[in-house]
């Protein structure tokens, strides 16, 4: 286990909400990525008091590693509550690391239509990017060792834990 004191996710989300609110265009569609991103998105949605219902996507069908690892055991439904065409979208995930999840999520979002703008909000940003993807809003940046795996658990009570990666 790591001795780092991990921040409280709810406090991070409040800060993210404040930062998003400062340049909020009217009536964006908030979309969380299953599973952790959807939990964060739900809290952000309440925090921002948005009127358009919350969306969620499962990126399993758009992953770049299907031929290596196959489908996630439980593929969830993707739900985009409203027409995405020309709308402002805020994409939410729990952890941004390689950027591959976000790449897949963008592809999926574009299969629903052509949004006017997509912003990225993540609870945790850590290094090791493998694609040119940067967040617009970040809860906290953490410098973690590549052997460390950070995990958000929920959904009732959000909690961050760091585990040693099984290699």
């Amino acid at each position: 286990m790591n001795s780092t004191i991990l921040p409280n996710p709810d406090e991070l989300i409040s800060a993210m909400g404040a930062s998003l609110r400062s340049n909020l265009v009217d009536d964006p569609i908030l979309i969380g990525i299953h599973t952790g991103g959807a939990w964060v998105a739900k809290r952000l949605h309440a925090n921002l008091g948005l009127t358009t219902p919350l969306g969620s996507i499962d990126i399993s069908f758009y992953r770049d590693d299907f031929s290596r690892i196959g489908l996630h055991p439980e593929v969830k439904m993707s739900e985009i509550p409203d027409d995405i065409e020309d709308r402002s979208v805020i994409l939410v995930d729990d952890v941004l690391q390689t950027g591959r999840t976000i790449r897949a999520a963008l592809n999926e979002i574009f299969s629903w239509g052509r949004p006017a703008v997509v912003q990225l909000a993540v609870l945790i940003e850590r290094g090791a990017r493998e694609l040119p993807i940067q967040p617009d809003v970040v809860g906290v940046r953490l410098n973690l060792d590549p052997s460390q795996h950070i995990k958000l658990s929920g959904p009732e009570e959000l909690k961050l834990t760091i585990m040693k990666k099984h290699l």
Binding site: D65, F66, S67, R68, I69, G70, H72, R100, E130
Partner: peptide, 16 residues
């Protein structure tokens, strides 16, 4: 179709 084509090497963990 997805099921029969499912991962040739399923022990790997997905990258975030």
């Amino acid at each position: 179709m997805a099921k029969v084509m499912d991962g040739q090497n399923s022990s790997q963990e997905a990258d975030k």
